[in-house]
Design a protein around this nucleic acid. Structure first.
Length: 713
DNA sequence: GTGTGGCGCGTCTAGACAGCATGTC
DNA sequence: CTAGACGCGCCACAC
């Protein structure tokens, strides 16, 4: 089937022609035949990199051409950015909405395509965003994630809500290969397109003892080092290919990259450039190690790295300068970063409570599917490493030839639907019991499960909780949100978190930073740090010296949850007291990327608890707001006035303060020259411009805060 | 005294969404 | 309540 024969705009066809795309791949043609352009719902379950995005894009342009609006839902922010770039520059207006980046909501609605994470869409629904009802085409990327225990229910509820709102909307669901596609397609009223076809041939094998066993033949691998995983890598690189190695822990990823760097010994100006751009900003050991590896053509990739560092690694690999990346599952789920050979070294992963568990087949496929760069590699290879001879067959059975797992709804889990039930009530999707039941009948759970009683019981218990915590009122058949419940829904807060915060704040005997932070860290919305053996010492010491500052009860016996919350709170407290990144990472055994992730999470929770304080403990609102600002910048209280200036953050504010510029007045009266000696003339001039221009605005800011603070009082 | 290698044991273990309002070094 | 790698302390040994 030729692109030219399709009912798509000439401009888009020209874009494709320019990239050399003239004909559709067989599965893509299948989509057209099954009614892609006739408004049929489709569930497309085909391997990664076999052209799902193109199908979605053609459908979106088709809708836009007829005045429609498209919403493209992705599971990750990084993916949202990637898709945003993909879709931009082709004659349509594209917007992006994720937690860390969005255009103003009303403005967002003026776009033809909006790319968003599922949580962001949920949040937009809760805040009654008007343009959502104009969506005529919904694209669901990676729908199989509907069975993720922690986030799947959100996706399922968002889909159900959007269908409820726009019954005529077309749905295109993109999925990895799954065990029960009929079931999912049935729920979506969708035509099913299934295929194993790939544009680049994929050969899946198992390595053992100097040889890769493929289904039809074997391939010897030269033993060059004492590490088999490294031999496999060097084998590919000697044929001018690149390698992606998946391992089970960060430590393993770093250790492998070091070995690979030592084995490769590559050197080039490009590599030196990349290494230098990492090293120049490197504060921590992790970052220095990364720079050293990159200099020799190897790298590691995990969530402890900053976004910028991950970006450099990805770019270096795409350009071909970096030959090997050893990675935790960060890269498996995320970006499109193909390689000639994928080595799945660790197929067991630690799981607290269960020990080492084999990774799911679907995840194996996800990683293996990364092998083979279209148009660049003659074929792709994915290799599992067998530890013993008997494992060869077992790995073939359990992964290469195994059927993919079924996708199952997570909606019967009380813990995850609590938030969604509240939002249904708060947003008016369900105003009485029957409506709520009717809505839940439309979920994938109801469509696929044989035990409706479980869902019914979960909903019942959730309602009980919401009623008792006074987030909803039940009057006969009617259910109404309270002002509190409505606030919790809009803040996108887990009701359990909200209840914990709202019941603790009024009982607090005086504000304390650590009290607030530790409370927030006991909340299910806050990820907490793993407590190691030698953390016990300083945790105990802290409790002995500052225990009375805590707002939650100190348990009598060792309690993992409590220890984790306290350790995490101490990290955040160190950040807000300007402890250096290097020190924080060393003290708590985390990477710089983790620090940012935790600060970001707690910022959101601090913001939410300030709102809750407005309602339940107004006397604390002022202090919490101050903490919100301090945490955002990572500063002690005395820098608060200075950091209001644009271009001034953690580091510059501290430098100013230590040089006697302790307030805006002090800066103003010192004059631009003196200031310039400390920060450089450029920034000094820019600051004085602000001081001149906004003299009144800045001066009045404290009064301004007061008025908004007690908004809920 | 110093550098190197081997052994045994204890320790530790992936990821990442959301609010709000715009700009760190 | 699981598997395996890493890294430390310790010791033996060579120079």
């Amino acid at each position: 089937m030729q692109i030219a024969d399709l009912p798509i705009a000439p401009a888009l066809a020209a874009c494709y022609a320019e990239k050399g795309i003239r004909a559709l791949y067989p599965p893509q043609a299948d989509c057209v035949e099954k009614g892609l352009f006739e408004g049929n719902n489709l569930l497309i379950a085909i391997p990664t990199a076999s052209g799902k995005t193109l199908v979605a894009e053609m459908a979106m342009h088709h809708h836009i051409g007829r005045g429609g609006k498209c919403l493209y839902i992705v599971p990750l922010r990084a993916l949202a950015n990637e898709k945003y770039d993909d879709f931009s520059g082709k004659g349509v207006r594209v917007g992006i909405a994720t937690g860390d980046f969005d255009r103003r909501d009303d403005y967002l609605g003026r776009n033809d395509i909006i790319v968003a994470t599922s949580e962001k869409v949920d949040s937009l629904l809760r805040n009654k965003t008007n343009w959502l009802s104009e969506v005529s085409l919904l694209v669901l990327d990676e729908v199989h994630l509907i069975d993720s225990p922690d986030r799947g229910a959100t996706l399922e509820m968002v889909i159900t809500k959007l269908r409820h709102k726009n019954p005529a909307m077309q749905i295109i669901a993109l999925s990895a290969t799954i065990g029960n596609p009929e079931s999912l397609a049935g729920w979506l009223d969708a035509e099913l397109i299934e295929s194993e076809w790939r544009p680049v041939d994929l050969r899946e094998g198992v390595y053992y003892h100097g040889c890769i066993h493929f289904p039809d033949n074997d391939r010897p691998v030269e033993r060059r080092t004492k590490h088999e995983d490294l031999d496999l890598c060097l084998d590919t690189i000697s044929e001018n290919g690149q390698c992606l190695v998946f391992v089970s822990s960060r430590k393993n990823a770093e250790a492998f990259a070091k070995r690979a760097a030592a084995g490769l010994k590559l050197e080039s100006p490009v590599l030196t450039g990349y290494a230098e751009s990492i090293r120049s900003k490197a504060d921590t050991d992790t970052e220095k190690t990364l720079a050293a590896c990159v200099a020799h053509g190897a790298a590691f990739h995990h969530a402890g790295l900053k976004k910028e560092e991950r970006r450099i690694v990805e770019q270096g690999f795409r350009e071909g300068a970096i030959k090997v990346i050893s990675s935790t599952p960060t890269l498996a789920a995320g970006l499109n970063l193909p390689a000639r050979r994928v080595i799945i070294r660790d197929y067991l992963r630690f799981n607290s409570g269960e020990g080492m568990v084999p990774i799911p087949v679907r995840e194996y496929r996800q990683m293996a599917g990364r092998a083979g760069r279209p148009h660049l590699d003659p074929y792709g290879e994915s290799v599992l490493i067998a530890k013993g001879e008997e494992m060869i067959d077992e790995l073939f059975d359990c992964y290469i030839e195994a059927p993919a797992e079924d996708v199952r709804s997570q909606c019967a889990n009380e813990a995850v639907i609590c938030s969604h039930i509240l939002s249904l009530i708060a947003t008016g999707f369900a105003r009485e019991h029957d409506e709520l039941t009717a809505f839940m009948e439309k979920t994938f759970y109801a469509a696929s499960s044989e035990s409706p009683a479980i869902l019914k019981r979960a909903v019942h218990r959730v309602l009980e909780f919401l009623r008792e915590s006074e987030m909803i009122l039940e009057v006969g058949e009617w259910i109404e949100p309270t002002e509190y419940g409505s606030l919790v829904s809009r803040l996108y807060l887990n009701p359990w978190s909200a209840e914990r915060i709202a019941t603790t704040l009024p009982r607090v005997d005086g504000y304390s930073d650590i009290g607030l932070l530790q409370l927030l860290c006991t909340t299910p919305d806050m990820p907490t740090l793993y407590v190691r053996k030698n953390d016990a010492y300083y945790l105990d010491k802290f409790i002995a010296e500052h225990g009375e500052e805590l707002w939650t009860e100190i348990p009598w016996h060792a309690d993992e949850g409590f220890e984790r919350s306290l350790k995490t709170a101490l990290l955040l407290n160190d950040w807000a007291n300007e402890l250096g990144e290097e020190m924080i990472c060393e003290r708590y055994g985390v990477g710089p990327g983790d620090v940012y992730a935790m600060v970001e999470s707690v910022n959101w929770l601090i913001h939410a608890s300030r709102q809750l304080a407005g309602m339940f403990a107004p006397e604390l609102a002022k202090s919490i707001e101050e903490m919100e600002l301090r945490m955002k910048h990572g500063i002690r209280p005395e820098l608060l006035p200075i950091v209001r200036l644009r271009g001034i953050g953690r580091v510059r504010a501290r430098r100013l303060f230590n040089n006697g510029f302790t307030s805006l007045d002090a800066i103003r009266s010192a004059g631009p020259e003196k200031l310039g000696r400390i920060l450089g003339q450029g920034i000094a001039a820019q600051i004085f411009e602000q001081l001149e221009g906004k003299r009144d605005a800045i001066g009045e800011e404290p009064a301004d805060q007061q008025s908004t603070l007690f908004h809920f009082g």
